[in-house]
């Protein structure tokens, strides 16, 4: 266990309750994606864990160190890439990175700096001033700053917000490399494909509550409705009576059937459906199934909780 969050609450001075008792555990080497709409509390959660805001109550333990009692030991393990691009515009890339390392009590390490900057394609820009860099480069500078003290737990707050497709892919590659090195990563995003592409587990946050946290595959399975699409050999004018009572629909052109079923159910009804079709003398051309994406799962879940 690398991170343990217990009943974490945060109420701002304005009375706004950003976190309503969040508890979660993250294992070493894991990638956890926190999904949620804007204002869900993702950034508040990260800020509180990292020490940027004080929690109202609850505790956070990082690798056995409490963030308030052993803040030095706890924070040494953590790297943070913030959501907004916050960099001193007049500083040079190399200086701002060395500054970050210094803050973590570490002496300059030229070899490591070169390694990280090269990995993030920033080595050529090391003597450029921040204001001369493009948006994507600035974001990579933020990542370099977060990695320069060799954290074991890395927070990426919306790492690919307003980032082009190519850069997004390269970010994912960086994340994959870090995982190989055993770094635990928690990222927030509202791009579901991001969570789908790189996370091991997915947590869904809405209105300061953790609605669920699950392995990506089991989450998809748990909430996934599947659609069975059956293409027919011959046009069908009307559904046989015993089929129309079920969740089966005939397409307008009469050449295909769709059946929506729930993988959570013990009986999916597929066997029955197929034998009914065969009994009615309907010949099939092809069968395919579709699983709902995390996006659909997410929308359904948030809607469900609101009702």
């Amino acid at each position: 266990m690398l991170l343990e969050v217990n009943e974490l609450r945060k109420t701002y001075a304005t009375g706004f309750e950003a976190l309503k008792g969040i508890s979660l555990k993250v294992n070493k080497g894991e990638i956890l994606a926190l999904l949620g709409p804007n204002g869900a509390g993702k950034t508040s959660l990260i800020s509180t864990i990292c020490g940027i805001t004080n929690p109202s109550s609850g505790s956070v333990i990082i690798d056995g160190y409490d963030i308030s009692k052993n803040f030095r030991d706890a924070r040494k393990l953590v790297g943070l890439v913030p959501q907004d691009i916050t960099l001193e515009p007049f500083e040079k890339v190399l200086n701002t990175i060395n500054f970050s390392r210094g803050l973590f009590g570490r002496k300059k390490d030229d070899a490591l700096t070169e390694k990280i900057l090269t990995k993030l394609s920033l080595w050529d820009k090391r003597d450029s001033r921040i204001m001369e860099l493009s948006g994507g480069m600035k974001r990579r500078v933020l990542i370099a700053k977060a990695l320069i003290h060799e954290p074991r737990l890395l927070f990426l707050d919306e790492p690919t917000a307003s980032v082009d497709v190519e850069l997004r892919q390269s970010m994912w590659d960086v994340v994959a490399d870090l995982k190989k090195d055993g770094v635990t990563i928690i990222l927030t995003t509202h791009y579901i494909e991001e969570a789908e592409a790189i996370a091991d587990r997915v947590g869904i946050i809405n209105k300061g509550e953790l609605l669920l946290i699950e392995g990506k595959a089991s989450l998809m399975q748990k909430f996934g409705q599947k659609i069975l699409k059956i293409e027919l050999q011959k046009r069908l004018n009307q559904l046989p009576k015993d089929l129309s009572e079920k969740n089966v629909k005939l397409s307008d052109d009469g050449l295909s059937l769709t059946y929506i079923y729930d993988t959570k159910q013990k009986k999916t009804g597929i066997t029955k459906l197929l034998s009914n079709l065969s009994n009615s003398g309907i010949n099939l051309r092809d069968i395919q199934t579709d699983q709902s994406s995390l996006e659909e799962i997410f929308v359904n879940l948030v809607k469900e909780k609101a009702e």
Partner: peptide
């Protein structure tokens, strides 16, 4: 200045 441009996050999250 760090407060204004937001780089204060780094001070607050460092040991």
């Amino acid at each position: 200045f760090p407060k204004f441009i937001g780089t204060i996050y780094e001070l607050l999250s460092a040991p």
